[in-house]
Amino acid sequence: MYLENTPKLGITVSLVNTSLIGQRSESAGYTYSLFDELKRAFSIWINLLKILIQWKKTNIVHFNSNCSPKGLVRDYLSVLLIKLFSIPIVFHCHCNVPDQLSESRVGFYFLKNIIKLVDRVIVLNSRSRNFISANFQVAPDIVPNFINLDLVDLKRKRVVRKLKKLTFTGHIRRSKGILEILKVAKDFPELTFYLIGPMTENLEAEEPIGSNVKLLGSMDHEQVLDFLRKSDLFVFPSHTEGFSVSMLEAMASGLPVVATDVGANADMIESKGGIIIPTNDVFALKKAIERMKDVNLRKKMSIFNITKVKNNYTSEIVLNKYLNIYKLLV
């Protein structure tokens, strides 16, 4: 979406690499070998070098990283290469930084040295900003993910009195809190839990799937958005996130949210657009769903979420944040 929208700002972008790498690709069900990773690294460096030599009008390098420990080694070498050309570097951490680095000395070391070299650091959420500020004495800019304004349901249908349809979108796996959903669904036979997304782990051996849980598999984007608009509540008990676009789309659809206290979740709904619960806590999830049976509460949350997305997370607003950062460096 960044590439699709940058022409509106009068910016020309050259893309160096789009590969899924490191821990993020593993969590999405992909695997990679050391040989594959080295091939990707050399491909990145060669393409980057070609662009820096041939395209002499490069003003800024915007460097996206998932901050996996292995990936940060490659990122550090890439940043050193860019520095040879004296071009300002914006280093963008597309993850929840504490989750990636809290137990990795290697990752911590290389991110520390990357931050010393770059001109600006961007993160997705306040947790990442606080972690970097405390450990590296740098104040990063928070720039969230975004969606286009036409996806925001400004005319949200009337919130129905009776809670019926609860929806989750994302990978069907443990790290997304699916086991917690399967367990809590047993306590609400009157509700239907719709899980949209590819199943990348077999969870049925650990927790039987009840008759009120519907595994819908992958859908195209328009189908997902249409389903969200017809739902009553978005349930998102993920164990780790950076800034969830799935949750953002649910908010844009006017859905109240029950989400875990990870990544940007609390930044997004501020306790006014949903209920924040601890991770791996089936009782807290059950209690939150019970509270959401209050139609007046859901109405207030629905209005808040639509307004929050409209005023903070649309492409025009977020891309202008990027532009303001770029202007400081050129």
Rank of each mutant, 00 (worst) to 15 (best):
R40Y: 13
S244F: 02
I122S: 06
E180Y: 10
I114N: 06
V258F: 04
W55T: 13
I82E: 01
E4D: 12
F234N: 01
I21A: 14
L248T: 08
L319G: 04
R161L: 12
K327I: 05
A284E: 04
S19R: 15
R229A: 03
G242R: 02
L323V: 01
G217N: 04
N324L: 12
L319T: 00
L77Q: 08
S175N: 14
T169P: 02
K50M: 10
V160G: 15
A264Q: 03
K321E: 10
I172P: 04
F243P: 01
I172S: 03
A288L: 05
V138E: 10
E316C: 13
S43I: 09
R40H: 14
T12D: 15
P140S: 05
C67Y: 05
A185V: 03
N5V: 12
R291M: 15
F108I: 00
N64Q: 12
L179D: 06
P144Y: 00
K321Q: 13
F42V: 15
S19Y: 09
F42T: 14
E290G: 13
T260W: 04
L48C: 06
V152R: 09
D294I: 06
V258W: 04
K50F: 11
K155T: 12
V16W: 00
D267T: 07
G197I: 06
E190M: 11
T279I: 13
S175C: 15
E103R: 14
M268T: 08
L117N: 01
S315K: 08
V73P: 00
G274L: 04
G177T: 04
I142D: 06
R161N: 14
M251Q: 01
I82P: 00
L101Y: 04
V257Y: 02
D36A: 13
I317W: 07
W45H: 14
E204V: 11
D232S: 05
H94N: 10
K300C: 10
L191E: 04
R40S: 11
N311L: 14
K186R: 11
V73Y: 05
V258A: 05
L248N: 07
E204T: 10
F234D: 00
K70W: 13
I87R: 10
G274C: 03
S68I: 01
K214M: 11
V79L: 05
G274S: 06
I53M: 10
T279C: 14
K272A: 09
P98K: 05
E103L: 14
V224A: 02
S175H: 13
S175W: 14
F85G: 02
N148P: 08
